[in-house]
Simulated scan of single mutants.
Amino acid sequence: MPNSELMPIGVFARRSGLTSSALRFYADSGLLPPAEIDPVTGYRYYSAHQVVRASVLRQLREIAMPLAAVEAVLDAGADEASRLLDEHVAKVVGDAAAAQQKAAVIKSVLGNAPARPITALKGPVLADAVEQVLTATAREPGMPVLAGLRIEAGHGAVTLTATDRYRLSTRTLVPIESPGQTWAGTVDGDELRAAVAGIRRSVLVRLEAVPHGIWLRVTGGEDRHCRLLPEEFPDYRLMLTSLGEVTTRVTVSKEPLLRALEEHPGECVALHVADRGMHLRSADDEHPGVPLPATATGQDLRIWFGLTTLYPAVSTAIGPDVMLDLRGRDRPVTVRSAGRGDLTTLAMPVKPDPSA
């Protein structure tokens, strides 16, 4: 190769973002040998074609990929390299979660603070409630508390609550053992999800509070520790007390409503409620839409929802029928089981298309 096309190691280092010492290391390891070495001076020269490989190598090392894996990615085709990257990221994320969990357990025993009994619940009931309420969580940068589940124990009841700001889901459980005193905390949602299978297999689950977390003590299995999130949970009780008067109430069969939502082609869905029942339609469609088996009382109303907000609110309801309490086109709708009111979900409507 003509010398005019080669770069000395210092120039190549600046082009690639790697230091000269790193380039020597990668050359000696066989990952990035220089294009040419001067036999007299030992100076190393690199070609412009090597810049891309060097830059990718640097980026792979920045995400803590081991040398052997780096070599495999650099020498693989696009599909195989993508698969190897996904495997590495999954391992890094898993290792970080495990370290975070272990650190939380260590913090829970620092200072020898004794565990404080909170309450005891039936395992299968708690598992179902956790799964139902966690559908209202979300991961938002800067607001980690929206990925958590609020647990409040006291006065003979345990309440689980979650919100993603567009939905709010809350369920009240009757404990096996009434809490001796009140307790409240926001538990990491991902760690609760991971614990659900073990909770479901346990006849009884005892909840114990420790610094920075709670223990889920199960029967015949492995106890699980879940971190508490330090951020303040949104004041959902203020939202509940300021909802306003129900102006329209609809009781609708759950399965036909879910099926209609699943088959709906758009991202936004309109519910048209009148004294004759309810229709589901597109916001930009003048057709009466899909009729649904329902009974309605109160004012006629047409209200719009995002499909990703309404569907999970309905799907987690308990029993064959769902009751919708509506307060107007711009107010939250309350979604609850017609026969059981211990699971309640609020769903925010969206602004309708002015042409609809």
Rank of each mutant, 00 (worst) to 15 (best):
P114E: 11
R53Q: 14
D86A: 13
T135P: 09
G289L: 02
A317R: 12
S315C: 07
L307N: 07
G180Y: 04
M278R: 01
S178T: 13
T172Q: 13
I37D: 12
L57K: 00
A260N: 03
L126K: 06
A296K: 06
G277Y: 07
L271H: 02
L343S: 11
Q100G: 14
S242G: 11
A153I: 02
T316M: 15
R276S: 09
V252A: 13
I199F: 04
A64K: 02
I63R: 02
E245S: 08
G277F: 05
Q50W: 03
R193D: 11
R167S: 13
T159R: 15
K122L: 09
A98N: 13
R44C: 11
T159P: 03
P33D: 07
T334P: 01
A76R: 12
T241N: 07
L168I: 14
R327H: 05
T316R: 15
G17T: 00
T163Q: 10
G148Y: 02
G17F: 00
R327K: 08
E191S: 14
D285E: 14
G142R: 04
K254Y: 03
T295P: 03
L261I: 14
L271P: 01
V11P: 00
P352C: 01
D353P: 00
Y311V: 08
H225T: 09
A209D: 06
L261F: 05
E208W: 07
D353E: 04
G17W: 01
V145H: 02
R340C: 08
T135E: 14
L307H: 09
A13E: 06
R139M: 06
I118S: 03
L280S: 01
N3Q: 12
L257H: 09
H279Q: 03
L23E: 09
E231Y: 06
T248Y: 05
P39I: 06
P354S: 03
A270T: 07
P349L: 10
D235V: 07
D95Q: 11
P256D: 01
S108C: 09
F233R: 07
V133L: 11
Y26N: 07
R15V: 01
L74Y: 10
V73F: 06
W304K: 01
R327E: 06
S29K: 11
L85T: 08
D275R: 12
H49Q: 00
